[in-house]
Design a protein around this nucleic acid. Sequence first.
DNA 1: AATACTATAGCGACTGGTCTACATAATATG
DNA 2: CATATTATGTAGACCAGTCGCTATAGTATT
Lengths: 197, 197
Amino acid sequence: MGIEKKKQLKKQRDSLIWAAAKLFRRQGYSGTGLRDILAASGAARGSLYHYFPGGKEQIGAAAVTAAGGLVTETFVELARQADGPADFLRRYTALLVGWLEASDFRDGCPITTTLLETTPGSAAIGEAGRAVFADWQLVMETMLAQDNWPAVQIAPMATAMIAGLEGALLLARVQGTAQPIHDTVGALCTLLEAKEV
Amino acid sequence: MGIEKKKQLKKQRDSLIWAAAKLFRRQGYSGTGLRDILAASGAARGSLYHYFPGGKEQIGAAAVTAAGGLVTETFVELARQADGPADFLRRYTALLVGWLEASDFRDGCPITTTLLETTPGSAAIGEAGRAVFADWQLVMETMLAQDNWPAVQIAPMATAMIAGLEGALLLARVQGTAQPIHDTVGALCTLLEAKEV
DNA sequence: AATACTATAGCGACTGGTCTACATAATATG
DNA sequence: CATATTATGTAGACCAGTCGCTATAGTATT
């Protein structure tokens, strides 16, 4: 009972984190005020500083960790279902394009903007971001290893996959089209299916 | 004489634009105040609103156009010197890594952060960004065409090159290492040199 | 004399952060 | 079991500082 109660109580905390993550994704870190987060989550100012005595920076780091972690979970689940890295990318593309179009290309990567704004100014947010990228990298590397890629090619190829996705997402948002994602993923898949790197 | 004089007078305007571009690149759009730009350029507030009656949004768009245009010029010059797209990427990588290390990974892409923050909120900045990306795309496509790529592959491959560079630059800044750039460019070069897409 | 440009004071709105008052919950003590 | 006591969490007023922007006075250029 105590545990469930605690979970209930932590609901306010979670609500704050997710409200912050959504707002940071759309308007960036500096462009989002604590008042926006408070209004979106319905919490009071006192609650925010109770759960996050470190203020905006701390909730920023928590939002990066939470939103990045959700992407990691999606990656892991998709990697489990997919038949190799190229199939993984195609499946993720389908999801990604769906989200983009549903939000009219407003919702991009939930951590990129915040990280670009706060690197290297905030050590806490930067560290959260590096941890997320490391998780993503691990998922990709595991997939490539299971696809029998030569050991020395695994890490670089995994990085190229993440970089390609991030860059394509940026272009897609700015241009308001999913085309950059299809083009970039197409190129990555060519590379992944050739395998003779 | 009149023309030169006008150029002289426009120096304040240019100074404002470049001060803005540098600050936006490091701290983002929302994170940079007009006071910062004024202080960095040495101009007075009145001058800013004289040259940019549209205020922050207008100087933001001008900064994107100017900084993006400088990158375009670098691309064009490098494309002229390089022996094909893969060589182009390797040469640009050398430059990029040099700039990154010289700034301790503080100076990334001069337009990415601003665009992510203001898309789709600001039509003017978004339009400036799309124009820059279109220029970059044209440079890449021209290079691929000269390298005798099949017509249908040219546009997607050009997009993938830009996306890869942008994503790698993001990862490099956050991780404080040039490795993501080397890895991503390596993968792109493999693709470019195979050509059997 | 007219135009182009500079300089600064000041506006209302908003920033992140602090502080105190208060409600609720868990624990301790008779 | 009932009542004190201490954590825990909520609520909002308030602060100094900064935001983008406007208005006005002044200087320089043509």
